[in-house]
Design a protein around this nucleic acid. Structure first.
Length: 591
RNA sequence: GCCACCGUAGCUCAGCUGGCAGAGCAGCUGAUUUGUAAUCAGCGGGUCGUGGGUUCGAUCCCCUCCGGUGGCUCCA
């Protein structure tokens, strides 16, 4: 086929791979090269779109059969040829109609659809060799500039991201300006695999999901349960300290309650079918809020009582489509570390500030020091007055700014009932996970007609804040596992200390050490098996136990223990009081 | 839910075009009494995810369902 354009682009803007714009251009160009290769190998494949993404790029194709891993290898080979040819990327502005007829001749229906939605008179095309694509650009000067790339996977994706549309095939890949950067990236993917909470969870005996029990339902094994208990204890203590009242509520409630709350109208697709009890329909709860509201409504409230803060580790059940379930991170039954704050309008800014302070305190305790914060503003469909939205949004904004945190606006992403702050924590290898959320609610106080008696003797409506610090215990636990790669800090470790005997003759002494540590609440086990010390250390290390206390004849005689920390650091001989002091301090400081 | 791939022992995985199901680790038994990441030997263990179909014969081919993985959409 003849080249469509013959001219070289006018000017070049200097960009490098080091800044995001440069990287995106580079990878976007790589995606063009991939599409070119695909069209050469599979001329009937129809082009959709192919942008740069966070760590690479993709391109969507419509093709009558699916692409196989072998196809990807062939595509990579062809791409290398295109790169080697080092052909320039050429930009050309052409008339919209002309572009449509061009893509008609090329039989590219998706491109035509895209152009039809562009209102401008002309559109830009980019050409490289005989491959022409509708594209805003910019691009790298020529194909040869791509130094290294790799195609990673192929997956289904709906045209325009709408599930009513046809499903296309998306090929994912990435490219870098240096070979070693690609290798580092692939290494990071390996690291992510190694940290996968589903594997670590099984290896360390933390939790399981059983096909016979049901998808998305978590079984907490003893060690996982111990970690959960530690988290819960911490959570309850801190909530007490931060002036919350702890409450409990049932797992089911009458369907009518959910009608009144609006969940049946707005949340039905996430709720399970009702169950009938004495001719009345009941629903498994997807949220805790209506219960807390009923507690609020159980007596007359005065402005003097506010704010009222009800907190509950509330277990909820939500229907999630089968394809989205994922280990602990996306499940069908989970426990939210939920709270609802009822306050006066004038208290709103302070309350939000307090919640944010509390959130950051809790996240820091679990080793999360960096966050991506999003302020979600009013969506198109909403309840409440514009004035209230304005007040609530600025209260949220003020709280973040006062705390000196940076954030991004997520315009129109608020819930219909109010604006919110979402916090994503960054884990040890820089990945962001959505956990905390702080939401203002104008809807439920209205629907349930909750009030307080004001200073003026009149009835007023309180404002309600929903908040979760960890989000859900399941997801948070999953994130923690990946964050620590299973090597939990001492205070969270299910087994904090293991005493290892070298031979049978230290059995009694080893037992005594274990019992003494246990008696002061340090989670301790003893490995008294008739095995070599090397094996016991190996197993203790694999189980990621923070402290191994090794006991042989020398220690027994000297009334000491030999301390080996997780990771292999040898602290040598210590007396029992010495090691206890060290352990206590480390647990206390939650390091 | 949708697209693709996958499901063999507790775990990780072999099993060529259909012909009696394998390894390593783990487990159990015995020997060994051991000094900072694997002592040696022996033994047991699978309706090959489920149900159906094709076939003389199915772990292998076809269909259904269940479960998982990577994405899409959605989300704590």
């Amino acid at each position: 086929m003849m080249p469509f354009f013959m001219q070289v682009a006018n000017s070049e803007v200097h960009i490098t791979f080091d800044d995001k714009e440069g990287r995106d251009v580079y990878r976007h160009s790589t995606s063009h090269i991939m599409a070119h290769a695909v069209k050469e190998l599979f001329p009937d494949a129809k082009l959709a779109i192919g942008p740069a993404i966070e760590d690479g790029f993709y391109y969507d194709f419509d093709y009558h059969r699916h692409f196989t891993p072998e196809d990807l290898i062939m595509i990579e080979e062809r791409m290398r040829e295109i790169i080697k040819a080092d052909r320039p990327f050429v930009r050309k502005e052409i008339d919209r109609e002309e572009a449509i007829s061009y893509f008609k001749s090329r039989e590219e229906p998706y491109k035509i659809q895209l152009i039809e939605e562009i209102k401008d008179k002309s559109v830009s095309l980019y050409q490289e060799g005989d491959f022409v694509d509708l594209c805003l650009g910019p691009h790298i000067p020529s194909t040869g500039k791509v130094k290294t790339f790799k195609l990673l996977s192929v997956a289904g994706a709906y045209w325009r991201g709408d599930e009513r549309n046809r499903m296309l095939q998306r090929i994912y890949g990435t490219s870098f300006s240096k070979e070693e950067d690609l290798e580092a990236y692939l290494k990071k993917l390996e690291e992510i695999k190694k940290r996968d909470h589903r594997n670590i969870g099984r290896e360390l005996g933390l939790f399981s999901i059983n096909e016979e029990t049901g998808a998305g339902l978590i079984l907490w094994h003893p060690r996982g349960a111990l970690i959960r208990k530690t988290i819960e204890d911490f959570w309850r203590e801190e909530h007490y300290r931060w002036d919350y009242d702890l409450v409990y509520s049932p797992h089911i409630a009458k369907l009518d309650l959910w009608k009144k709350s609006g969940h049946i109208d707005f949340y039905r697709e996430n709720m399970y079918s009702p169950m009938e009890i004495d001719n009345i329909d009941y629903e498994l709860k997807p949220m805790n809020c209506p219960f807390h509201i009923m507690i609020y409504k159980s007596e007359i409230r005065s402005y003097r009582n506010l704010p009222i803060r009800y907190a509950e580790l509330g277990t909820v059940y939500r229907y999630e489509r089968s394809g989205v379930l994922h280990g602990l991170l996306r499940v069908r039954g989970f426990t939210q570390d939920d709270a609802h704050i009822f306050c006066r309008e004038d208290q709103l800014p302070d309350e939000i500030q307090r919640v944010l302070d509390f959130t950051v305190f809790v996240l820091k305790t679990f080793g999360f020091h960096e966050y991506d914060i999003f302020l979600s503003t009013r969506p198109e469909e909403y309840v409440g007055t514009l004035e209230n939205w304005e007040k609530a949004t600025s209260a949220l904004k003020m709280a973040i700014e006062k705390k000196g945190l940076s954030y991004r606006n997520d315009i129109g992403a608020g819930v219909f009932y109010g604006p919110k702050i979402d916090i994503k924590v960054k884990d040890a290898i820089g990945r962001a996970w959505q956990c905390s959320t702080i939401q203002v609610d104008f809807n439920l106080p209205e629907r349930f007609d909750i009030t307080y008696r004001g200073e003026d003797g009149k009835e007023h409506q309180p404002i309600m804040i929903h908040r979760a610090l960890m989000g859900s215990l399941e997801r948070f636990f999953g994130v923690l596992i990946e964050h620590y790669a299973g090597a939990f800090p001492l205070w969270l470790s299910p087994v904090q200390v293991r005493v290892l005997s070298i031979t049978d003759s230290q059995m009694d002494y080893a037992r005594k050490i274990k019992d003494e540590l246990r008696s002061i609440g340090i989670r301790t086990e003893a490995d008294l098996r008739n095995e070599k010390i090397g094996l016991k250390i190996r197993e203790g290390s694999i189980e990621k136990i923070p402290y191994l206390l090794i006991i042989g004849e020398k220690e027994k005689k000297g009334n000491t223990v030999n301390v080996r920390k997780r990771g292999g650091e040898n602290l040598g001989e210590m007396t029992l009081p010495e090691i206890i002091e060290r352990l206590k301090k480390e647990i206390e400081e939650k390091l």
